[in-house]
Design a protein around this nucleic acid. Structure first.
Lengths: 138, 138
DNA sequence: ATAAAACCTATAAAAATTATAGGGTTAATG
DNA sequence: CATTAACCCTATAATTTTTATAGGTTTTAT
């Protein structure tokens, strides 16, 4: 399951996408809309900013805004940023690979093949679906 | 990511599948093979037994054995048993559904559609691949 | 100057996962 | 029939991860 952090990030991005007409959006607006703690959300938005997804303006009248076109924000990027690996096992993760300590010979692990399939199917969707697809439905 | 519990369950089932010629297999044999704590594994095997996947024999000379044909043990069953939901969001889980508290109107959530797709692709593999498929590769 | 807002880092609280502990029950065997 | 080996059961401890809070810093509009 996705963490709350990731889910909240999606909600925030959706909200920002819906309000692209205005220059900036306040953390507070988003946190009130979804009932998310202001401070918790603040950390999430900061991460999204550092990852180059959001821009911000400090000071009075400031706030956050989307810095990219929604269609250029794949869902996989957000998940990886806040949740880490998408794969079900560390040994088949493309971005967060780690060997399974209990596996003597990874090439002989029968699980691995299936988990690669699962990963690829997940990525096939999550790399190609973007924030734009979410916005379309709302 | 799958929990260690689930991963260990798969390892144990694989081991049991490989040793179907013998009447029973000791917890200890499995725990030594994979370097898993005996007691931790014991709990896992108990759960698999209660779920009707394994049988056991108590007392001296006892142990565990597969009670089902490997091809009748879909991977999804093991994951759900030990890890819970396969879906990425509670609101699209078939077996562990829960609404997202922050969603005022679930039917208007743009995330939901994509997450249903992801779930279905995952299930398409995990419901159809079985322990037999894992054993084939080992 | 003041107020409003993001920025930053640390820490606390809660929850989930992983692991251990210890006795109970069952059954084979000499 | 005593002993030993094995699973059974439940509780709790330890660890890790996630979630949340706290409090000050910097920036900017007015």
């Amino acid at each position: 399951m996705l963490s709350k952090k990731t889910k909240y990030a999606f909600h925030a991005l959706t909200y920002l996408g819906k309000h692209r007409d205005q220059k900036t959006v306040l953390i507070q607006d988003i946190s009130e809309e979804y009932g998310i703690s202001h401070k918790f959300l603040e950390n999430i938005l900061l991460e999204l900013k550092k990852a180059g997804i959001l821009g911000s303006k400090k000071g009075k009248g400031g706030g956050y805004y989307l810095i990219k076109d929604p269609k250029d924000i794949p869902l996989s990027k957000v998940i990886r940023l806040l949740d880490g690996p998408i794969a079900l096992l560390p040994c088949v993760s493309l971005n967060y690979y780690e060997p399974c300590v209990e596996c003597k010979d990874e090439s002989k692990c029968g699980l691995k093949n299936v988990m690669i399939q699962v990963r690829d199917e997940m990525l096939n969707i999550l790399e190609n679906k973007t924030l734009a697809d979410i916005l379309d439905k709302e």
